[in-house]
């Protein structure tokens, strides 16, 4: 999901940075001081989860879980994803300073959309609706994310059209895996700790 440094054109970088700044502003505003440790520690959990490699056929993919992140965190998912990507840039040099804005937006925007579309349905008592919504949440998180990566590439220049298509196609299996993982983890959390599915930033 990361776009490397030096690939994107200036307008795309500036747009990404501006929207991410706005999104983080909203996210931080909705985040109470006494919920900061909670969101932060969940962020580190998601960071560690992104190190988990899940086998698929002969190869493996690592988890992204931006749909689940949106589901649990709501708007604070924006700053949370920013922090996670910043740490990845510092620790592993995946992505970097100038692409931080675009990369955050590409992952956090789907998270917020998933939150609005599916958070309510996931909490429903009807198992079928809840499970379907959870699967859709993981699936759309990646689908939308890969579309956004593709769009950032195409806006940079037409020659990237081919790569943009490859990015979306390559993410197809990831979408299904993320959907399944989100389905089962949401079900797990719903059984064991339903209050985690109540968005964390709500005031105590």
């Amino acid at each position: 999901m990361h776009i490397s440094e030096g690939v994107l054109s200036a307008p795309v970088l500036v747009m990404g940075a501006a929207i991410t700044a706005a999104g983080c502003g909203i996210g931080l505003k909705k985040l109470d001081y006494d919920r900061v440790p909670q969101v932060a520690i969940l962020t580190s959990a998601f960071f560690v989860a992104s190190l988990v490699h899940v086998p698929i056929g002969p190869s493996s993919v690592h988890l992204v879980l931006n749909g689940l992140m949106g589901l649990l965190l709501g708007w604070p998912a924006f700053p949370a994803i920013l922090i996670a990507l910043f740490l990845q840039a510092l620790l592993f040099q995946f992505g970097g300073i100038t692409t931080l804005g675009v990369n955050t937006f590409n992952m956090a925007f789907p998270a917020i959309i998933c939150f609005y579309l599916f958070a309510y349905a996931v909490k429903q008592r009807n198992n079928l609706i809840s499970m379907g919504a959870a699967f859709a949440c993981g699936f759309f998180g990646i689908l939308l994310g890969s579309f956004m990566v593709a769009i950032s590439l195409v806006f940079t220049g037409d020659p990237f059209m081919g790569i943009a298509k490859v990015v979306v196609i390559a993410h197809l299996p990831v979408m299904i895996i993320e959907g399944l993982i989100t389905l089962f983890s949401a079900g797990f959390l719903k059984k064991l700790k339903p209050e985690l599915l109540e968005v964390v930033h709500a005031k105590r």
Partner: peptide, 20 residues
């Protein structure tokens, strides 16, 4: 496998929440 991994993730989130 996917179910096991999902429960792993769920457990991690749950433990982190309690820890927080």
């Amino acid at each position: 496998t996917y179910k096991a991994y999902a429960h792993l993730v769920g457990m991690m989130l749950l433990k982190s929440y309690d820890r927080s």
